[in-house]
Each structure stands twice: as C-alpha cells, then as structure tokens.
Amino acid sequence: MGVKVLNSGLSTTIQDLGRPGYFHLGIPMSGAMDQKAMRIANLLVGNPENAAGLEIVFTGPTLRFDEACLIAITGAEMPFKLDGVSQSSWQSIQVEKGQTLEFDYLRAGARCYLSISGGINVPLVLGSRSTYLVGSFGGMHGRPIAAGDILPLGRCDFMASQVGKNLPTKMLPNIGVREIRVLLGLYSYRLTEGSISKFFSEKWVVASEADRMGYRFKGGQALEFVERKAPFGAGSDPSNIVDSSYAYGSIQVPSGTEPIILHRDAVSAGGYFTLGAVISADMDLIAQLQPNTSIQFVSIDMHQALLARAERVAEMKEIRGYISNS
C-alpha cells in the first residue's frame, strides 16, 4: 500500500499548508512555498486544502503507486508521464495500482506540487505534516523523501466525479511574474534615500542560495547606510541591529550587498537590518523563481498591498467555486 519512492528527486519534501504558532520559539511555519499551487492540487483530487502532498524542486522524483488513487500536479512546468504516457498538469488524473510516475526536466518555474487523494498520512508534528529540514522533524522523519521510502496515504475512496477535474487556462496562476511588490519599512531608515530608490530601480538576479529558508539576490549595487554611532549591542557593521524578530517576507541585506527574502523555513530572528517586506500576495511568486532569473522590486503602499491581497482571495474563491461545480 502507499506510494513507493523509486528515486527521490533533488529535495522533495512532504508539505501541507504549514505549522503556524511556534515562530516565537524559532520554529518556522514551513508548509508549501507556493500555497496557491498546493491548495489547487488538493482541491483537484478532492482533498481538504491543507492535506499533505509533495513539494518538488528543480528535479522530480520517480514514484510507484501501490494503490489506486487520484493525483494532481500543479505549480512549475515540469512534464511528467504515467507508465510512459504524457499527462497534463493542473488536472486530476486517475492512477491504477502499480503505475509509475516520472518527471522530465524543468521547463518553467521552480516548484511542483503533487497531491494524492487521501493525502500523505505521516504523523502530525506540532499540528502539521510539513517537513522542517533544519529542525529535522515533520514529513518523512524530518528529511527529504529518499529512494525506498513508502509514503503512507490517508483513506483514498475518491469520487468518480472527481476524475479529470481541471482549471481553465485563465484561472491558472502566472508563474512568470518578474515584479515583486514590497512595502518599505522595518529598518529602512538605516538607508539613504538615494540608495532606496536605486534598490527599486535595479535588476536583481536570483543567486544559487535560494531555498525554503530564504532567497538571495545579487547584481545590484551595494546599499548606502546613514551614518550612526552603533547602538549598544548592535555590532559595528552598519547593517547590524540589536538582534530582533524577523518577519516572513522581510528583506535583509547583510553588509548591504546581497538582499535575502526570508521564506517559510526562515530563521526567526537575527542581527541584520531589514528594509521592508514582500507583500503576502507575492510570496507564492518567489517559490517559482529559478536561480539566475532577473527580477525587479516594486515599492507599493499598504492600501495597494491590501488590494492585492483581496484580489488573491477572490481568485482563490473563484477557483474553489469552479472546481466544486465542474
């Protein structure tokens, strides 16, 4: 029973929507980096949106299904075959017992989400099945899946009416967005005004250090700091502050050179200044950025951030309605 892992892929982890509530102890919320793609994958196979599936990054696993089920694959564009036959993403697919799923190389985006009817039924840890790699818990014993693992499934009595559910193209998230919207704030007062406008006018390129903890960027000019006498406890570098709590999505720039956006496995606190935070509506977009992708940060205000958030809620509501009525 369950799903046998024949090949693991680069770093395939079990994720649900996350584990909020323990960040004050240094345990981040984890969960799918592209929450919308994870939610849609689950809806397509008839799961609760919070069911655990696989987050697949850059290269895909090879899996053998030892029981019949429904699957859906969303997110990045990474072609896949079931027993050698090509299948489409963003739709639910019936899988017979014994069939094997294989992925081709990545074409666009960075992360795919695989949902299986019944969900992957590993134990809940602090209320979630998400893998937190640095803390070595959650998911499959706190590590990525590995060849030889058997992923246990929850009860899998799917409805025949669920087979072939899909989304019209116009409802698919656009993973090609290259503008990341930011609300300036937090410790931005450490920077000169000229440096702030330069930050928003330059192209920034995703560096190779881009993972679930944070996304690093390079290519822009070093930031300029307002002069100061270092406050007691902060440290002497102009980018140092008295260590404080970090916000998800906040952008820190150690020594003023390479911005890092903290994502869902973020460290909870530290001593580097942050210049603001990516708005909640754009956090999923970051999950789909490959290294070497060039992006621009766009400064917006709180009113615009809330409008973007409301748009995203409305889109998700429309998707739910479409899938349940189709």
Partner: peptide, 18 residues
C-alpha cells in the same frame, strides 16, 4: 512602530539593548 508587509507590525522599544 513600523509595518513589515501587510501581515506584520514591528515595535522597536529602543535601538540599543538594555
């Protein structure tokens, strides 16, 4: 008082440690 995106509010009591 300063917002960190649309989901966080940061309050810095002082810029030095005590």
């Amino acid at each position: 008082f300063t917002f960190g995106g649309d989901e966080h509010l940061l309050v810095e009591c002082a810029d030095e440690m005590s």
